[in-house]
Write a protein that binds this DNA or RNA. Structure first.
Lengths: 102, 102
DNA sequence: TTAAATATATCGGTCATCCAATATATCATA
DNA sequence: TATGATATATTGGATGACCGATATATTTAA
């Protein structure tokens, strides 16, 4: 059987979009800023091949909007993005109810 | 572009093992009981092909132990399982810090 | 005006999660 | 003991998150 580290059992796959929406709800950020903040939280910085496609999906879904300034693309939540985030947060709390109070 | 429901952006893939460990830390349960509790929280009941392989992995990793009584297999956290859960919870809180206070 | 650093972007591929379908064993009730 | 309901279990396959490598554009420094 394959050996796995502790981190395996909470590997957070599928949570990237959710986390990005949450971070952007705090303040507008660009791709690298988001990646750095995720590194602070997770310990691992998502690769370009992870973060940019994720941003693209969110942008195409009209959940975030971008404003370009030089090479920097700053993202902000759209109205729809805030809506989706709120729904997702409700779901998140329902699912993990009791975990954080401990 | 593909249309996605709200739930997509918080689809929780990769969190099943973590959730199972957490639920078992509250009280010993069997497979169906776990599946039912997850249905309560997520709204969708994980299929047998999801829940049993997940339990098998956790068991083989010595994170949960089973005790059979008739057709019912009741699972309990092992010492190692409690350790891994605690580590995972710390990580979880670090990553999602700020989401639940809102 | 090169050179180095930073930000963005895409592609190919790997891997784990998860489901649908199916099978088997045990229990309850008739 | 036959029947149906419940619990466990496996397999095959689809999906998509994620990484590594690579490429391009912009900024800054030399």
């Amino acid at each position: 059987m394959r050996k796995r580290g502790y981190e395996y059992y909470c590997d957070m796959r599928g949570m990237l979009s959710f986390l990005i929406l949450f971070l952007l709800s705090k303040k507008p950020m660009h791709g690298q800023g988001i990646a750095d903040e995720i590194k602070k939280r997770k310990g691992i910085k998502p690769s370009p091949g992870t973060i940019y496609p994720a941003l693209k999906v969110l942008h195409e879904a009209d959940l975030i909007k971008e404003s370009k300034s030089g090479k920097i693309l700053t993202y902000t939540l759209t109205r729809k993005g805030r809506m989706v985030l709120n729904e997702s947060k409700k779901k998140f709390c329902r699912i993990f109810m009791g975990i954080l109070s401990a």
